[in-house]
Design a protein around this nucleic acid. Structure first.
Lengths: 194, 194
DNA sequence: CACCGAATGGACCAGGCGGTCCAGCCGCCT
DNA sequence: AGGCGGCTGGACCGCCTGGTCCATTCGGTG
């Protein structure tokens, strides 16, 4: 698919994706045209189509991958070292901080919804993201000797998703905090028979 | 604001909103033009702008209100009669069924994200929706003699949101089921100390 | 150093879409 | 009955945006 990228070419491509992603984060997908991206990344129209021959959709797809990776990355180093009680607290705080900072915009979600109808290959990206996310949580729960790690992983993921969803819509992070803490309780204290 | 609507006018307006909402549900916001709506509702361009002088954004806003109302409506009669254990089960099943049927499209969410940047008045709509939704759940929890109804309401709402979010993204409703049941447990059995 | 393909610049195009406007119809109210 | 004001039809406009194309430069490799 990629026709031999020079080192320089690869750098340009990366610059485009990163710049465009930043633009999307602050403005929203619908508010950004190829020309905006062109301006923000100091590139020409031909470069955009040189690196993304299929046009806008292909570029958005690349951005989606970029953003999906960022979601997990932003939870490190906490996410990978879950196990002991303090690690959960640290992770919890990191998640809350990250999404409070993000404000009311959900780049990946917007991207997904926009691409999904016409672009089937976006679904695997988000599916994979959620899957490894859940898996990381499950591993953490297992290390914490939770009674049902799989279930805990799933419930924790749902708590984050739900809380963030409400935060996105209302601007209030209370739900996220409460949901997270509630889902976390059985993990932190495996003694609870429940 | 509304300049005297005839009975006929009101009917037309309603026809437009309902028809457009249906169209959005099956295709997604970005895939629907005013002309599509015009065709689907058998109206003319001038009617669209007669009833929604501010144009597309105003129409979308009306659709958002329509959809928000539908969210709660679709949970009736269960949502308003929550209390006894069977009522919770019925509600749970209704929610799962509704969102499984909805598929991977979230009209209200898409609408919100699209309007939010330029249209501040959309936020109150979804905020109000979430608020009364949570309130209904809290009332139900209270009637069920849950130990902390407020918290239960919030956690339940988050569970639904999170589960639906994951369902929307992956097409898998397992998370929704598990999250709901987990959040429901303390409500169904107030004896559990926590 | 010569060559070839990658990289870049930017003018240009076509179509879709939101929005405007005017002309004619219908129906309510006195 | 008559007229005023809401209601409807549909032609028309102009911008914006994604996408195309060709000419030029750059860079590495034989």
């Amino acid at each position: 698919m990629s026709t031999a990228l020079t080192r320089k070419g690869a750098a340009t491509r990366e610059r485009i994706v990163a710049g465009a992603a930043a633009l999307l984060r602050e403005r929203g997908v619908d508010e950004v045209s190829l020309d905006d991206i062109r301006a923000a990344t100091a590139t020409s129209k031909s470069q955009l189509f040189h690196y993304f021959p299929e046009g806008r959709s292909q570029l958005l797809l690349a951005i989606a991958e970029h953003e999906a990776a960022a979601v997990l990355q932003d939870q490190e180093p906490h996410l990978s070292t879950l196990g002991p009680p303090e690690s959960w607290a640290a992770w919890r705080d990191a998640v809350i901080a990250r999404y409070e900072a993000q404000g009311t915009r959900c780049p990946l979600g917007a991207l997904t919804r926009q691409l999904a109808p016409t672009n089937p290959e976006v679904r695997p990206i988000v599916t994979a993201l959620l899957d490894t996310w859940r898996e990381r949580l499950t591993e953490g729960a297992r290390r914490a000797k939770a009674t049902d790690p799989e279930k805990s992983g799933l419930v924790l993921l749902a708590a984050v998703q739900g809380g963030v969803g409400i935060l996105l819509a209302t601007g209030d992070s209370t739900a996220l905090r409460v949901a997270l803490d509630t889902a976390l309780a059985p993990v932190l204290d495996p003694e609870i028979v429940k």
